[in-house]
């Protein structure tokens, strides 16, 4: 069968959602940010809520998320996205409000805003990209950097004694009564992307049902910061990140999933 007979509009099975703009993504080749952006937008498209959604972009690699996500968006200062989202949601309780934040933004400078938004049960959705490093500023140690992991500010590896422990923010947030749905996913393989998308859908559905704060952590790669090829960085992530940041739902419908 000739390829021309296959490539026809009626045979289309997958294309980039129009909720992603046509702008070329500013991320490094192979970075999980782009995939994470796209599945958030696919969920918004599938739920038919583009006109009712307001997003909050962070500071970090995804500071320009509003260039790529085709919804009304505001850029927050570093770490304050949950506070900004709180202000929006309190003014527009009927609209969908989400933040998109990295680990430095959410788990270091924005820890207080994150925990308190979650503890108040703000009815917002947080998409949390955890790649264990500050990507934008050039690969410095993040709160989520693993023990022994080399970064530009832990060049001999993260020493727990002097640099502290990697922070499991998602586990911490799952403990709070204000959170309804908490999940940890990844986007490095087709199966994981599909699961992550389901989790993001569940998070937005939870917001729709006014159940409190929903959060999906996406353990992702930072091949530039980790100084690896994209595919190798994904393999390294599976081998090293997942044992410490295990994938799966932590809290569903306000109830902790077993062993949490």
């Amino acid at each position: 069968m000739d390829i021309k007979d296959i490539i026809k509009p009626e045979n289309l099975v997958y294309q980039k959602t129009p909720l992603m703009t046509d702008k070329t993504l500013s991320y490094c080749p192979g970075c999980g940010h782009g995939t994470a952006h796209r599945i958030v937008m696919e969920v918004i498209e599938e739920m038919g809520i583009q006109s009712e959604t307001i997003g909050v972009a962070p500071v970090g690699c995804s500071v320009l998320a509003y260039d790529f996500m085709n919804v009304d968006m505001v850029g927050a200062s570093h770490g304050r996205a949950p506070a900004v989202a709180t202000g929006i949601k309190r003014c527009w309780p009927e609209k969908f409000v989400y933040t998109y934040q990295g680990d430095g933004d959410l788990a270091a400078i924005g820890t207080a805003e994150t925990i308190h938004a979650a503890n108040r049960g703000e009815n917002i959705t947080i998409i949390f990209i955890n790649n264990g490093i500050y990507g934008m500023t050039g690969g410095q140690m993040a709160p989520t950097t693993l023990e022994g992991m080399k970064t530009s500010t832990s060049p001999y590896g993260r020493d727990l004694k002097s640099m502290g422990n990697p922070l499991k923010m998602t586990e911490l947030l799952a403990q709070l009564p204000g959170t309804c749905y908490v999940s940890r996913q990844s986007v490095h393989s087709p199966r994981n992307v599909r699961r992550a998308k389901k989790a993001i859908r569940a998070a937005f559905e939870s917001q729709k049902a006014n159940k409190g704060l929903s959060l999906v952590e996406i353990v992702s790669n930072c091949n530039s910061g980790w100084k690896m090829e994209p595919v190798a960085s994904n393999e390294w992530m599976v081998e090293h990140m997942f044992p410490f940041y295990p994938l799966g739902d932590l809290k569903v419908d306000g109830k902790l999933v077993n062993n949490q």
Partner: peptide, 9 residues
């Protein structure tokens, strides 16, 4: 990651 692939079947 860059959403550059369209698929037909």
């Amino acid at each position: 990651p860059d959403g550059v692939i369209t698929v037909y079947k």
